[in-house]
Simulated assay, not measured.
Amino acid sequence: MTLPSRKTLLGNVLSLAAITWIYGGDLADALRARTADVSALVDLPSPIRPSVVLALAALATAVAVVGLVQGKVEGFKGFRLLPIVLVGALFADLVLAESRIPIDSTDMASMSLQRFHKLAQALSSQDAVAEDPRVLQPLLEELGRPPYLVHGEPLTAYALQVRKDCEGPVRDAPGVRPGTLLYCVAPERKGAWVTLVGLSAEKRFGAPELLSAEGKVRFLLVQPAIAEEDPAEPGQAFRDAAAESGAAFRDAPAPTAEGGTDGGTSSLQP
Score class of each variant (00 low, 15 high):
R6Q: 13
L10V: 11
V13H: 09
V13S: 14
L14D: 05
L16Q: 13
I19V: 15
W21D: 12
A30C: 01
P47C: 09
L56R: 13
A58S: 15
A58N: 09
A62C: 12
A64N: 08
V66Y: 15
G67Q: 05
L68E: 09
V69I: 14
Q70A: 15
G71N: 12
V73T: 15
K77C: 12
L81R: 00
V95D: 06
A97S: 15
A97L: 12
S110T: 10
V129Q: 06
A130P: 00
D132L: 02
V135L: 11
Q137P: 03
E142G: 00
R145Y: 05
P147Q: 07
V150L: 09
K164W: 11
D165K: 04
G168T: 04
P169F: 09
V170E: 15
A173E: 03
V176F: 08
Y183Q: 04
E188Q: 14
L196P: 02
S212R: 14
V217Y: 01
P224S: 06
E233P: 03
G235P: 03
A237C: 06
R239E: 11
A242D: 12
A243Q: 13
A247G: 03
F249L: 15
D251R: 13
A252C: 08
A257M: 10
E258H: 10
G260Y: 01
D262W: 04
S267W: 11
